[in-house]
């Protein structure tokens, strides 16, 4: 396959940045998108240029690092996949592909396609945990009964890998899907109840402080989410926050 890549290049956080065009030839349809970028970088290095900086780690869809906005969509045209799980067979020979970093004031560009997603870490630090003593005799998890549907729902919320595709896809750069998944994974389990109210309040407050936008319920986040996190999590967080605020701390 022969492709034309329009890639965002930015030397650092302060640089204005620009699009750069690179023709790439001999791409195999079996390559993952990241392998194709590796090929591009190999070509750039051989020509004596600066390779395109991009985040990646596991390359099997579980780390959430490969943040790329491809042809107008987070992680490209595929559904339920990250960029590393997107294959070149999803494109046609001769295609022109536009590759950009996540765009959000809360996710500043570090270089080229790599963005700083530590805003998500700070949201987790603000309340995305259960305070239990793990130093002594740890309780057997099965000692606390959890209904199967509840456990399944909590688990599917917990599958969120914090990749930021929800923020990138949202026209308002809202982090509601991420935060609500992290709120829900505890809110649905007995272990999460003692801190349920304070958790949702702290996490929403931190989310606002980081400068994410507001949810206008377009649903784009859930469509683009590689893990299929459901919008019902957002409703649950809306409910929990209202209840927690009404009750006071």
């Amino acid at each position: 396959m022969d492709l034309t890549l329009n890639v965002w290049r930015q030397n650092g956080p302060e640089d204005k940045g620009r699009m750069e065009t690179h023709p790439v030839s001999g791409v195999s349809p079996d390559m993952s998108f990241l392998e194709m970028i590796d090929m591009l970088n190999d070509q750039i290095i051989r020509d004596g240029g600066d390779p395109v900086a991009f985040d990646h780690d596991c390359r099997e869809g579980i780390c959430g690092m490969c943040s790329m906005f491809i042809n107008g969509e987070a992680h490209g045209p595929g559904r339920g996949v990250t960029t590393c799980q997107l294959h070149m067979r999803s494109f046609k020979d001769g295609d022109s592909i536009t590759i950009e970093p996540w765009r959000a004031s809360a996710f500043p560009v570090v270089k080229d396609l790599a963005v700083d997603r530590s805003a998500f870490d700070r949201i987790i630090q603000s309340g995305g945990y259960v305070s239990v003593n793990t130093s002594g005799e740890t309780l057997d998890a099965n000692a606390i009964p959890v209904p199967k549907p509840q456990a399944d729902e909590a688990f599917s919320a917990a599958t969120c890998i914090g990749c930021g595709a929800c923020v990138a896809s949202c026209k308002n750069a809202s982090a509601m899907l991420f935060v609500s998944a992290k709120v829900s994974q505890f809110a649905l389990l007995p272990q999460g109840q003692p801190e349920r109210a304070s958790r949702v309040k702290r996490m929403v407050e931190q989310m606002d402080e980081e400068g994410f936008g507001n949810c206008t319920n377009t649903g784009a986040c859930a469509v683009e989410c590689p893990k299929g996190i459901d919008l019902s999590n957002i409703a649950r967080m809306n409910r929990d926050f209202l209840k927690a605020s009404a009750e006071g701390e």
């Binding site: 699009m19 536009t98 765009r103 004031s105 809360a106 308002n172 936008g213």
Partner: peptide
């Protein structure tokens, strides 16, 4: 919401 994305996408679908 505008402030949350000061730099927009070149291509957005």
């Amino acid at each position: 919401n505008r402030k949350s994305r000061p730099v927009g996408y070149v291509k957005e679908k």
